[in-house]
Design a binder for these strands. Structure first.
Lengths: 82, 82
DNA sequence: ATTCATTATACGATATGCCGTATAAAACTA
DNA sequence: TAGTTTTATACGGCATATCGTATAATGAAT
């Protein structure tokens, strides 16, 4: 299953998923990244457009990486996501 | 080879690669996205942290998508050069 | 229900991105 | 070479993200 993200909301949801997988609270992640807990909260909610710098800091702290690629065609069924 | 991006510079380089593949100038892409040519220029150069919203608009215009995933260990050392 | 941890929201202040416009620099092409 | 397209950079002004700090809401567990 591949975590595709095309909107801030999807990106935030992915971040949250990975953060919890690592058993970190927003506060703990904030400490690692020198960001505020509030900033991480808004990113995960996808409420506002955040800054790319913020996303990158968080990805690094969670040992994640970004892959940019052409959009996968409609062959991807929703069922495959679960 | 997978287009992994962990820094603004790498992200910018990927965007540029895909834009050129579609034979679009920065000005043409700017028109599609309602951004300025200057904004696209700075994003591609990776000079400044841009806004996530800007990146997403451009990805959409280029029909690209983002995948977030755990870091692949293979390229770790190489990426540390940046 | 109460407590404790976690997450969401609020305030003014500061930093930074994007805007419009414009020009300069580079890269192609004839 | 000169001319054309493309990309990089500059300015003031506006919009917005993050800051620090703090509090309110939610969730989890006993």
């Amino acid at each position: 299953m591949e975590p595709i993200a095309r909107t801030p909301k999807q990106i935030g949801a992915e971040i949250r998923r990975y953060r919890r997988r690592k058993k970190l609270s927003q506060t703990e992640l904030a400490a690692k990244t020198k960001l505020r807990q509030a900033t991480i909260s808004t990113l995960e909610k996808g409420q506002t457009g955040t800054q790319l710098r913020t996303l990158i800091d968080i990805l690094a702290a969670l040992e994640l990486e970004l892959v940019i690629r052409p959009r996968s065609s409609a062959s991807k069924k929703i069922e495959d996501l679960f």
